[in-house]
Amino acid sequence: MSRRELAENVGIDPRYLANIELCGTIPSVPVVMQLIRICKLPAERYFNPELLREDSEQRQRTSHKLQLCPEKYLPIVEGVIDGAIKLKVADDEKEDV
């Protein structure tokens, strides 16, 4: 779903949605609830401060994007993650030498 389509479904301006997504603008509770419902996001991630503190902003963004990723492309994403983990292990082994 495009940003424009999502904004229309939520009933907000696409620029406002872009500001929420890219600039960290904090939306009102009704807007958050609509976004959670429409995007089928886990509500507890947004209302449980303990969970929010666990992940960096980049991990939260990546997790959100992963939820939006079509199922058929998940093997590609998983392969990239596996490759990144292997690089990290190799870097750690080099540092230990």
Rank of each mutant, 00 (worst) to 15 (best):
residue 19 N to K: 10
residue 12 I to D: 12
residue 43 A to Y: 09
residue 62 T to V: 02
residue 57 E to K: 08
residue 64 H to P: 09
residue 97 V to C: 13
residue 54 E to R: 04
residue 66 L to W: 15
residue 72 K to T: 11
residue 71 E to Q: 11
residue 28 S to A: 08
residue 92 D to V: 02
residue 27 P to K: 00
residue 10 V to D: 07
residue 76 I to K: 05
residue 54 E to Y: 08
residue 22 L to D: 15
residue 6 L to S: 10
residue 45 R to V: 08
residue 64 H to I: 00
residue 48 N to E: 06
residue 33 M to L: 06
residue 5 E to S: 14
residue 51 L to W: 04
residue 81 I to K: 14
residue 69 C to M: 13
residue 69 C to V: 08
residue 6 L to A: 11
residue 38 I to D: 11
residue 77 V to L: 13
residue 42 P to W: 00
residue 92 D to W: 08
residue 88 K to S: 04
residue 54 E to I: 07
residue 9 N to P: 08
residue 63 S to G: 14
residue 52 L to K: 14
residue 89 V to E: 09
residue 63 S to I: 01
residue 38 I to V: 07
residue 71 E to G: 11
residue 94 K to Y: 04
residue 38 I to S: 12
residue 16 Y to D: 06
residue 6 L to G: 08
residue 62 T to G: 07
residue 23 C to Q: 12
residue 41 L to F: 14
residue 63 S to T: 02
residue 10 V to I: 08
residue 22 L to Q: 15
residue 84 A to F: 03
residue 26 I to H: 13
residue 43 A to C: 01
residue 47 F to A: 03
residue 25 T to K: 10
residue 47 F to W: 05
residue 47 F to K: 03
residue 60 Q to G: 02
residue 80 V to W: 15
residue 26 I to M: 13
residue 12 I to P: 12
residue 37 R to W: 06
residue 20 I to T: 04
residue 51 L to A: 12
residue 15 R to M: 04
residue 30 P to D: 05
residue 79 G to A: 13
residue 74 L to V: 07
residue 17 L to C: 10
residue 64 H to E: 07
residue 78 E to M: 15
residue 68 L to K: 11
residue 9 N to M: 12
residue 69 C to H: 07
residue 26 I to C: 12
residue 88 K to M: 00
residue 28 S to K: 05
residue 87 L to D: 14
residue 97 V to L: 14
residue 7 A to K: 02
residue 31 V to A: 01
residue 18 A to F: 05
residue 71 E to W: 04
residue 8 E to R: 06
residue 41 L to W: 14
residue 2 S to M: 03
residue 74 L to W: 03
residue 55 D to V: 01
